[in-house]
Amino acid sequence: MGSALASDRAVYLPGTVRVAAKILVVGHFAVGKTTFVGSLSEIRPLRTEETMTQAGALVDDLRGTEDKTTTTVAMDFGRLTLSESLVLYLFGAPGQRRFTRLWRDMTHGALGALVLADTRRLEQSFPVMAVLEEHGLPYAVAVNHFQGAPRFAESEVREALDLLPETPLVTCDARDRTSSTQALIALVQHLQSRQARISQEQA
């Protein structure tokens, strides 16, 4: 496949699309981000990588950096054409907060984020939520339920995650398209009510 032209694999947007929106799907290691994006995407999910120093700077010149600690940050993303004129991109990204520049790029212009959580390690979601709060990006939380993972009452999960009362908490199965769509719907409804609240306060 190495010699294939990229244009042979590309699935182009309809010529009528005018607006592109962006939602982030974030969460700790192996929580189901790639699975979630893959369940919803109309294209085979793509991946981009950035090489970063441990300090969080982007590295484009790889010469002479062998002795510095660098790490690769991968983002999977998928696409949903929502109407003739509107396309939505979903970016799955790990929650490490040290990659400041990358987060700035990713959150810039994003509508909001869906935080995937796993009841077996809820505490690992804290840094993920912290980085979103730092960048002022509104979010909803979706517990991606794994077989054998403990099921808790919603109030217990809320308390364990220390969620604000208005932050939506839903359960989803990242492997299931309908369930994943419903989790995104919960996020967008939250964004709408937040917007209504803020514009009321400003009025």
């Binding site: 607006v19 929106a21 949903l80 929502l82 509107l86 939505l88 769509t181 995104l184 967008v188 709408q192």
Partner: peptide
């Protein structure tokens, strides 16, 4: 925009 995103998701 938010309404269009919501409508588009619901339609799926």
């Amino acid at each position: 925009l938010l309404q269009e995103v919501l409508d588009g998701l619901r339609a799926r």
